[in-house]
Design a protein around this nucleic acid. Sequence first.
DNA 1: CCTGAATATCGTGATAATCATATATAACTA
DNA 2: TAGTTATATATGATTATCACGATATTCAGG
Lengths: 116, 116
Amino acid sequence: MAESHPGQLQVFKAEFFKALAHPLRIRILELLLEDEQSVQELQRSLGAEQPIVSQQLAILRAKNIVEPRKHGTTVRYAVRDRALGELLSVARKIFNNHLAGTQTMLRELARESRRR
Amino acid sequence: MAESHPGQLQVFKAEFFKALAHPLRIRILELLLEDEQSVQELQRSLGAEQPIVSQQLAILRAKNIVEPRKHGTTVRYAVRDRALGELLSVARKIFNNHLAGTQTMLRELARESRRR
DNA sequence: CCTGAATATCGTGATAATCATATATAACTA
DNA sequence: TAGTTATATATGATTATCACGATATTCAGG
């Protein structure tokens, strides 16, 4: 007897992970976890075009992962839940343990841990 | 000066989260975290067609998240890293805190926590 | 070797995500 | 009010993902 129940909740969880499933959005979150940032600052740190950054922020906003705060004409973004840092850190751990298959991935991992 | 460096590593991290960004794959991982399972057993628990289950398992396999073990003609799958449970649990926490917006989502969350 | 059971892969059409360009809004400032 | 800066949204082209059905593969028994 199959549990034909697709599970609405898993749909929401999947949506959450989907929000993290993009290189630029991960970079954005890593930056915002250090400190809240304006769109401009993100733009500069990421070397990405303004609409792209706003687009990705819109996605993170839509999923309630990130929160905008207007200060005059600029908007500073902040991560809503510090636990997101924990999440990324656990992800990094799993990554180091089992996911690092290719040589180039290992090289990049080494470079990153040297940086932090 | 922008760090035009897109960061190869974030690409890999994104790939990892992309692997989790699917309702069925999340269900599969939750089941496998309880105990390793054959494709058939997953099929039954999920109420999904066989090719679908194999497909999603292939994706998880490709990302080294899950590991196949042949026993004769059947294949049992296991999660490679127990820390994945930790990851899902942190994700659930974030979820409960800030992401649960809609009524139906809250109802589902309540149902799930009652179940465990 | 042939068959049947368990699993994997392929091909296809539909849907969604992404990037880039252009345009729009909103708030300051002169 | 006009101009300027910061941010957001609309839109179209391209590519990726998905579900589904059909076909392959693998292995055990006879």
